[in-house]
Design a protein around this nucleic acid. Sequence first.
DNA 1: AATTTTTGTGCAATCGGTTGCATTATTAAA
DNA 2: TTTAATAATGCAACCGATTGCACAAAAATT
Lengths: 338, 338
Amino acid sequence: MSKKITIYDLAQMLNVSPATVSRSLNNHHSISDATKKRILEKAEEVGYRTNKFAANLSNQKSNTIGVIVPRLNSYFMSTVLAGIEQVANEVGYNLIISQSLESEEKEKINAKTLLDSGVDALLVSLANDSKDYKHFEHFTTRKIPLLFFDRVIDLPHCPTILIDNLSAGYEAGKHLIEQGCTNLMHISGNLKRKLYEDRYKGFKNALLEHQLEINDYTLIETDLDPKNIQSVIETITGSPKKIDGIFVASDNYAANCIKELKKAGIRVPQDIKVVGFNNDPVSEIISPNLTTINYPGHKMGVLAGESIIAHLKGSINLQSTNTILLRHQLITRESSSN
Amino acid sequence: MSKKITIYDLAQMLNVSPATVSRSLNNHHSISDATKKRILEKAEEVGYRTNKFAANLSNQKSNTIGVIVPRLNSYFMSTVLAGIEQVANEVGYNLIISQSLESEEKEKINAKTLLDSGVDALLVSLANDSKDYKHFEHFTTRKIPLLFFDRVIDLPHCPTILIDNLSAGYEAGKHLIEQGCTNLMHISGNLKRKLYEDRYKGFKNALLEHQLEINDYTLIETDLDPKNIQSVIETITGSPKKIDGIFVASDNYAANCIKELKKAGIRVPQDIKVVGFNNDPVSEIISPNLTTINYPGHKMGVLAGESIIAHLKGSINLQSTNTILLRHQLITRESSSN
DNA sequence: AATTTTTGTGCAATCGGTTGCATTATTAAA
DNA sequence: TTTAATAATGCAACCGATTGCACAAAAATT
């Protein structure tokens, strides 16, 4: 029981060849039903378990998908991962998940490790400070499908899944303006990442469209880590013209902003209206409830998983599809009402 | 470039044997430095990448650790996973993560898949409805180390990492009593899981110690999913004796309770005091801030990872250590003040 | 100079499945 | 009844790295 049983053992027990055993286990058509049954039953009886290493070596594939994310402990990311895992699991794919912790260096190492581990495909959401993408070339040259989601770059033959951040930013800005705000601010994530750049661009477009002033206080670039929120609050309160509308690139950060603003005696939404991003659960917990852009993380994960698996199974060719845009949606709540 | 290079290719290029190449790549002592250098350089030059399948097959190990969790998109769990990933990554281990989605059936399948995938160790947090643990026996019989965290069971030779839920529950109860509550309620998760059972037991002990009544309203068992919170709120408001203190087994659920209680016109903490569990970020966002039990998820992950890796490297023997208890801590905030 | 050690490499088996091709048994067609 | 077609199974090479053992060359010892 404790020593592992191979197809050779089974073959010997049943007086057939290992080839027949292998074919039976894989339900190959050229084996008679009787033999198959006999072999399957014996395999079950003696607790045979296939050795994936050997099978992988032979098949040159692992039924494994690699995932690299900046960090896995954010509501959004864990939701995406949950989606990916769910679809992958259903069709028998395993997920090797690693985090770059926002470091390009780690991202490179992780990519290499996953390459060596023989993942059949790679899903990536980029680290904030990744600037060089050579580490992904190994995958493309080896024709290992590579898909970017959320924090994406445009690489030849690599599809991307994301939302239309440009118009999401625009809608957020426009909404604040329609609510009567005239002195707007955007608290952004790292602008090296296109999604943040786009959100800001869209936001700025809304301002431009309404001839609102754009100045030094229109944009604050942060790492979206609530730890360093104090300086941001100071910037807000220190603005010469009173800020009356803020669009924050993450709900979590927005919630913390509201909390700190309240502490500073600033009322939300009366003094400042706030719009967040993602529709995290926290947006409905914070008081006032947070107006936000719904960003369907789970759906994104499911889609990423399904796309890559469909590609692996050969049913679609992802290389040609370049960008999949998910629908987003402004959800208005108390934090921007008047 | 695009076709993969093996040690045989390298051997041929350099007129040495594959064995020498292999040994060089693994920095075996019996190879001269000159040869090693020559081989390493060539390997680098031609972009050699080791084939893990072959290496794993030969070594009978994968440098991979399997993880099964109920779901990966909860703040607590994703934090634990982040901790595990971090330490595993640092020492070159990969993590295959799968979720049971609270289903015993899926947990079984996942365990099987991970066994087949040849993980060197398995870390598990159990699904709520798991009742049968035979699927883990394969691991123990094959001497694959198995460690449970958070939602644990006592299996021979399997260490567990958790906090002292009994005393945490007791402290939560005692705190509410000290704040003047006399009519207490506990909103629990699935009592099949020992951690929830223990939290309730501890809580009950506090009540007993202070001669407080225990009745039908003392305990509500839920799945801790905010979706079905309404019936719980109704139970609270419908209690003949007004409930004035609630201990909730998760911060997220507690936050939602507070939100709904406020909607129902019940003031927290004036009418009802609330204590949560986990010290999620949401506990500091909700107003009033939530008194809670700090449960160090990241630390738990790090510890789980470190333990299992130390065991794999042979530096410690986990089989003998049976339980690792992490320190928890009551954090008092507004939701239970008076 | 002869012998023993030490060092550095190679041979070949092994890990456990997979699969193209050959072979035999069986059934259908002529 | 003979021949062609079909079905079922086995042989043996292959996937790519690892490693015990043998062996030759170089260094150390007597």
